[in-house]
Amino acid sequence: MFAVAVAALLVAMAMAVTRALLGPTAYDRVLALNNMGTKTVVLIAALGFLSGRPDFLDLALVYALINFIGTVAVLKYIEYGDLGAAKRADGGTDA
């Protein structure tokens, strides 16, 4: 039965990849990749149960952390063109 969840997640991930390939804007691609990351976290957890090794949960936790930081980093790069920028390009602040 875990296989059902894993299969559904894989199909959903394929759909997200399709969206990432179709675009049309960079933001659609980031959205699709972020969404795929979330599904990967769940997939790792479900795979751990499928193979009888719940230790996989630690991997899922670390993947969740990395996925979040990765998404924000890519968005910051798209927005500012510079990962080290501390202020917004227009001089405003993040409210």
């Binding site: 933001y27 980031v30 972020n34 976290v41 952390l65 998404t71 968005l75 910051k76 993040d94």
Partner: peptide, 22 residues
């Protein structure tokens, strides 16, 4: 953890898209 980070990245995405002229 997922429920804490998802709104933050969604909000960042919305802001970036608005900033990018969409």
């Amino acid at each position: 953890f997922l429920w804490f980070t998802c709104p933050v990245s969604t909000h960042a995405l919305a802001r970036a898209a608005l900033q990018g002229g969409l």
